[in-house]
Simulated assay, not measured.
Amino acid sequence: MSKKTLAQITAMTPEARYDYLVEEVKANQEIWTLQDVDGCVMLTTEDEDCIPMWPSEEAAAQWAVDEWKDCEPLSIPLDEWLERWVTGMEDDELLVAVFPVQDDLGVVVPPWDLEGRIKPKTRH
C-alpha cells in the first residue's frame, strides 16, 4: 500500500480504514488504543461497549482531544493483543471500534473478527 497522509487515511470510508488498519497491524506487529489513569478508553454506542483501535500512534493521538485530552496512545504488541486482548474482550462482551475518526465511529466488530483478518490463515 502506498504511503498516504493521515488526512487521506482518515477521509477513507470506515470499511477502507478497516482494511488499512489490518494491513498496518500485520506490517508493524502492533495495534494502538488510548489510555488514561483509569485504563483503556471505552466508547459506548446505543447497544454496545467498544474499545477503539488504531493502526498507529499518530492516528490514536488524533482522537485525544476534548474529553479525551488526558489520554495517551498505548501500543499493544500484536502477539499480546491476539493472546490476551481478544479473549479478554470477548469475556467482557466488548467490541472493537476499528479506526474511529472524529465524526465516524468506524466499523464495529467482535474482537475475533479482527483477529481473523490479522492472523495468517493456517492450512490443516
Rank of each mutant, 00 (worst) to 15 (best):
N28Y: 08
D92W: 09
L78R: 08
V25H: 03
D49L: 10
S56P: 08
M12P: 05
V37M: 07
T5L: 07
Q102R: 09
G88P: 00
D79F: 02
E46C: 02
E24Q: 12
M1E: 07
D36M: 03
P120L: 13
G88F: 04
E83G: 00
A60F: 12
T45L: 11
R17S: 07
I51H: 04
T13D: 15
D47Q: 04
T33W: 13
P77S: 03
V65H: 05
K3A: 10
I118H: 01
M12G: 09
H124E: 10
Q35A: 06
R17T: 04
N28A: 15
C71N: 02
G116Y: 04
T45G: 13
L94G: 03
T122D: 14
W32F: 07
M12W: 05
T44G: 09
E80N: 05
T122K: 10
V96A: 03
M89C: 11
R117I: 00
A27I: 03
V25C: 01
T33C: 12
R84C: 07
A59K: 01
T5A: 01
P14M: 11
D70L: 01
T44M: 14
A16D: 14
D38Y: 06
V37A: 13
Y18I: 13
V98K: 05
A7V: 15
P120E: 10
Q62I: 07
Q35C: 07
I76C: 00
L105P: 00
A27C: 04
V37P: 10
I118Q: 01
L105W: 08
V22I: 09
V86P: 06
